[in-house]
């Protein structure tokens, strides 16, 4: 992809190279005083928020959140997300069993949608974010495709809540006492946590780290 594009001779200017920092609070661009010691703490002259070259602890927080999400991904898929009780008996449904039920019912497009949104996408998010994190540590690589991947991950994240919404709506609507009754299972909670945690991780990840390890730099 990058190879197809005409290479610009000059590198894009970065704050780090120019000695400029952006206040993450009020978005004011400030100059790093030349006299300041390397260890000194810098404050935004407008809002007095601490200034950082990169988001502080971006890597570790992101990694921690990702790890938590990865741990929770297991129970999210194994525990039942929905507990259905009808006249004809009780039923526990996990995400996968729901997909299989949809397949058996013949509505395979819906099954495919749920499968992707609830199983593939969270997994892909976990994998790609983890890969991005690792790539900032390792050898320099082209930044542009990684940035595109990052944007995709961020965009697609909210779609994973589809299942959670479906379950919550069902749990609210299907309350016919003895006839039929839907309760949210613990799996749904874990799944929701996975989605939220991956979204948070994507947010805490400082995209600029990708530039730092850009192969072109």
């Amino acid at each position: 992809m990058t190879g197809a594009r005409p290479k610009t001779g000059a590198q894009p200017a970065t704050g780090r190279r120019l000695g400029v920092r952006l206040c993450l609070r009020c978005r004011a661009a400030t100059r790093v005083p030349a006299a300041a010691a390397a260890a000194a703490r810098l404050l935004c002259p407008r809002c007095h928020a601490p200034l950082h070259e990169r988001r502080p602890g971006s890597r570790s927080v992101c990694a921690a959140l990702l790890l938590t999400a990865a741990i929770l991904y297991v129970p999210a898929n194994l525990l039942p997300v929905m507990h259905t009780r009808t006249l004809f008996g009780e039923d526990d449904d996990t995400i996968l069993s729901g997909v299989i039920a949809l397949l058996h019912a013949g509505s395979w497009p819906l099954a495919l949608l749920v499968f992707f949104a609830s199983i593939v996408v969270p997994l892909l998010k976990l994998v790609s974010l983890g890969w991005l994190l690792l790539s900032t540590l390792g050898a320099p690589a082209p930044a542009a495709p990684r940035s595109r991947l990052y944007r995709m991950v961020e965009f697609v994240g909210r779609w994973s809540m589809l299942d959670v919404f479906a379950v919550t709506v069902l749990a609210c609507l299907v309350q016919f006492r003895t006839l039929a009754n839907v309760r949210v299972g613990t799996g749904a909670l874990a799944f929701c946590a996975v989605v939220v945690l991956t979204m948070l991780a994507a947010q805490t990840f400082d995209e600029r780290l990708l530039w730092d390890s850009d192969a072109a730099a």
Binding site: R21, A28, T30, R31, V32, P33, A36, R41, L43, P45
Partner: peptide, 14 residues
């Protein structure tokens, strides 16, 4: 570039 305000420096914390 020179018209950018300069950041305030503070002693480092732990």
């Amino acid at each position: 570039m020179q018209e950018l305000p300069e950041a305030l420096a503070e002693p480092a914390r732990g």
